[in-house]
Structures are given as structure tokens and as C-alpha cells.
Design a protein around this nucleic acid. Structure first.
Length: 368
DNA sequence: AAAACATCCAACCGCCGCCGT
DNA sequence: AACGGCGGCGGTTGGATGTTT
């Protein structure tokens, strides 16, 4: 056996070959919204049946907005020839001198076109032109490392989220938020085991897997990231990242009504102002919908019914329907979560405690 | 018209180096 | 120091398309 590494993904479960327009669209939409901090996780989060490498390649060589199309100009060809003479087959380095051109494209052009030109020139000039694999050693610039998220970036990022949470500044469509929020929670809840259930004496793991050094409880500092690999989602820290948009990619079938949403969205001020009831109402509603709580009263039932009557249907394109359901999507029915309810236990100390209070550091964090 | 051949290029594969643990 | 994960790179492949016979 060779000592090659394990494959980056399960080859039997990923699609290969040419990309369809629907896949392109999905990949572009995802990256435009959330960036590409983690290629390995991206296909799952974006709902693509592709390996991360394949996604990266497609983006880098084809979908990136700054990729130049069309034939190379004479000047570009000459540049490639000169750089190849100096650098050899360092296609990425050559590409770095040609804005908008990819290493793959340059490599292809070289093999199909430029090499022949050089061969012709060589034969004409008596063999002085070089077109082989040059081994000229230039000090190669170290590859750019994935930029660490700075404290300032993290601060700005969460300031943005907080701003989105201000009254009147939040998600433009509360129902969309509630719908997508529920899908996210459905996913988390469906993956809960007994060990995941809240234990009052244990520190809570955050529900989100930050990619930057941000501790939602204590402020800005490095924290250990919980290992919940398949159950977690990575939050991009792109400057234009908006957590509400992150959730806004779902077809889940229930929504909070506006009152519930507002209470939920403004949970901190609601609690500080002694309006916890409104906040808790939103939580209970979510729990009921997720099958984590039985309807406690006629009133609650009416709230649920009213909300369902108020919901909007989300149209999914036929193309999207053909794609594999993303991990974070809500296409799965709620039944599995209802079954899960039986495996969960509430803290003994407070039988009325909301399951969503299992995230106190998240939900009540002033930074949010 | 059709078969054979040539060309193009998107995508895959395996390896490498960096980095975190 | 050793190991594993990941992004990046360069070589290669193979299907699509164009050209020639």
C-alpha cells in the first residue's frame, strides 16, 4: 500500500463530472453569502453532492467573478512564455502575474498552443528557445496562508449581527427568519443524544462553530471549538456576513408570528425590561413546532394554528429540487424530531425550562 | 455523409507543504 | 516530534467539439 492520505471525501457519495447550471448557481450563491472558509464543509452546507476540492476548483477556475473569459491576448501569451522560461511549470505563479487568468487555463494554453509556438520558434532560430520544464530556482513566495480572523474583524462581525438584531434593524422578513431558524434547530435537535441534553453543572457548548477566536460568553478570546463535526455549521466571518441571511435559505414550514418573532429577536431587551414572557412565548412555540413540547393549553394551540395560517409558501426552483437536500435545509419532515423528544430529558430542577434555554450563553449573550 | 483524427479544456487525481494538536 | 487535516499545486485524463480524409 502506498502511504497516500485518506481521500478527502467518500468518493462513492459525491458527484463527478461536469457541473450543471443548478450546481453552479448553488455554489455561487453560497459563496457570495458565506464565503469559502472551509472547502471541506462547504458542499454539505451548500447542499452540493460534490467534494470540497471539486467545489474549490469550480470556483477558482470558472465561477469566480474576476475570472477573465476569452482568448489570451498576444501580450498575455508573451508574458506566459517569458514567465515560463523563468519559472518553469509554476502555473500558479505565472497566473499570479496575469490578472483574471487561472493556473489551469494557463497550463492548458501552454500545452495546447504556446508550446507549439515555441517549438516553431526554436526550430527557426536553431534551438535557443526554451520550452521544456525549466527548473530555474527562484525563491518561491510562500503561499498565502488563510488569513486569521483578527479580533477587530470578529468584533466588527458581531457588531453587525447585533445591529441586525436592533429593533427595526433586524431581518426584513420575520417569517423567513423564523422558518429558517426552525430548520436549523430541527437539524440540531434531530442530532441530539442523551449526552447532549443540558446538564446544569456543565458548561454549555455553543450551538455554532465559530471560525474565529470569539468567545460568545466572555468576549474576544480564543476558545476551544466543540467537536460536533457533522452536527455543526461553520459561521463565516466575512465582513458582509449576516446571520439572518445565513438562516434564510430554507423551506421549513412553520413561522413565528410577528409578535413572537419580535420578542425572540429582542430577547435581551425583552428580558431586561421584564418582558420575558413574550420571549418565552416564542421559545415555547418553537419547541412545540419541533416536537419538544406538548401543547400546554388551548391558548398555545391557537397561537400555533394562527401562525400556521399566516405562513408563506417558499418556492423552490425545480432545479433546486433536483439537488440533494442540504444538511441545513428543512426538507426533512418533523416526524424524526418528534421521535427524538422521547430520548430527551429536561433539567430536573425546572420542568418548565425551555430547551432553548440550553443555550443561555448564546441567546442571552450581550454581543448578540 | 461518416469515420478517423486532432484539439481543447474542465475536471480529476495524487502529492506537497503548512499548520494545529 | 509525530501526526492528521486542509488548501493548493501540477500532471493527467477523457468527453466534447472541430477538422480532415
Amino acid at each position: 500500500m502506498g502511504k497516500g492520505k485518506a481521500p478527502c471525501c467518500d468518493k462513492s457519495k459525491v458527484k463527478k463530472g461536469p457541473w450543471s447550471p443548478a450546481e453552479d448557481k448553488r455554489l455561487m450563491n453560497f459563496i457570495q453569502k458565506h464565503g469559502h472558509e472551509n472547502w471541506r464543509a462547504l458542499p454539505t452546507l451548500a447542499g452540493l453532492l460534490r467534494c470540497g476540492k471539486s467545489c474549490r476548483l469550480r470556483w477558482m477556475n470558472y465561477l469566480r467573478p474576476d475570472v477573465k473569459r476569452g482568448n489570451l491576448t498576444k501580450e498575455e501569451e508573451e508574458t506566459i512564455i517569458r514567465l515560463h522560461a523563468a519559472l518553469g511549470n509554476k502555473w500558479s505563479q505565472i497566473a499570479s502575474h496575469l490578472p483574471g487568468r487561472t493556473d489551469n487555463e494557463i497550463k492548458n494554453v501552454w500545452h495546447t498552443h504556446l508550446r507549439k509556438i515555441l517549438e516553431c520558434r526554436s526550430s527557426e532560430s536553431g534551438g535557443n528557445e526554451s520550452f521544456g520544464s525549466s527548473t530555474t530556482s527562484l525563491s518561491s513566495t510562500s503561499s498565502e496562508q488563510a488569513s486569521q480572523v483578527t479580533i477587530q474583524e470578529a468584533t466588527d462581525h458581531f457588531a453587525d449581527i447585533q445591529a441586525a438584531n436592533e429593533p427595526g434593524q433586524g431581518h426584513e422578513n420575520p417569517k423567513e427568519f423564523a422558518s429558517s431558524f426552525s430548520s436549523y434547530n430541527s437539524n440540531i435537535v434531530s442530532n441530539f443524544s442523551q449526552d447532549d441534553v443540558y446538564k446544569p453543572d456543565e458548561p454549555m457548548e455553543l450551538a455554532f462553530n465559530y471560525m474565529g477566536p470569539y468567545d460568545a460568553v466572555n468576549g474576544i478570546q480564543e476558545v476551544d471549538k466543540p467537536d460536533m463535526s457533522n452536527n455543526m455549521m461553520d459561521l463565516s466571518l466575512d465582513s458582509d456576513f449576516n446571520i439572518w441571511d445565513y438562516f434564510g435559505n430554507s423551506d421549513q414550514s412553520f413561522q413565528l408570528n410577528d409578535v413572537q418573532f419580535n420578542a425572540f429577536q429582542n430577547s435581551n431587551s425583552a428580558i431586561e425590561n421584564g418582558q420575558k414572557d413574550a420571549y418565552m412565548e416564542g421559545l415555547r412555540y418553537l419547541e412545540i413546532e419541533l416536537g419538544l413540547r406538548e401543547l400546554a393549553s388551548k391558548e398555545e394551540e391557537q397561537v400555533v394554528v394562527a401562525s400556521k395560517e399566516d405562513k408563506q409558501d417558499v418556492e423552490a426552483s425545480n432545479e433546486d429540487k433536483q439537488l440533494e437536500t442540504p444538511t441545513m435545509s428543512a426538507a426533512e419532515p418533523l416526524e424524526p424530531q418528534k421521535a427524538n423528544r422521547d430520548t430527551m430529558t429536561k433539567p430536573d430542577s425546572d420542568p418548565d425550562m425551555s430547551y432553548f434555554e440550553m443555550w443561555p450563553s448564546w441567546l442571552n449573550n450581550p454581543a448578540l
